[in-house]
């Protein structure tokens, strides 16, 4: 299953967005591409510009700091849901 990440523009992030990617890389193989099964939108704040702009059937939105466990659980849940569908 292909997992992609897309960053917002990062004008004024409220947390270190790169930390999310680091966690993802530790647990999954990820691509900078929208041509994936699950697309993770890494937004710097709760405005979450990407959530309004990007269209994709399986999106996960990150818009505030999350623990490693939470990120991994969210991705695994999304993968499970996709497999079952």
């Amino acid at each position: 299953m292909k997992i992609g990440v897309k960053y917002c523009g990062g004008c004024n992030p409220e947390y270190r967005r790169e930390g999310v990617e680091e966690v993802l890389r530790k647990h999954f193989k990820i691509f900078y591409s929208e041509d994936v099964d699950i697309l993770i939108l890494i937004n710097g704040c709760r405005k979450a510009c990407l959530a309004e702009e990007v269209e994709h059937p399986n999106i996960l939105v990150v818009d505030s700091p999350m623990s490693e466990e939470e990120i991994v659980r969210k991705v695994e849940d999304a993968m499970k849901e996709l497999r079952e569908s």
């Binding site: 704040c45 405005k47 818009d63």
Partner: peptide, 14 residues
């Protein structure tokens, strides 16, 4: 303009 959507569906300001 920098507002956001909450889990309830309502939007609130930055």
């Amino acid at each position: 303009y920098e507002g956001f959507k909450t889990p309830s569906g309502a939007y609130m300001p930055n």
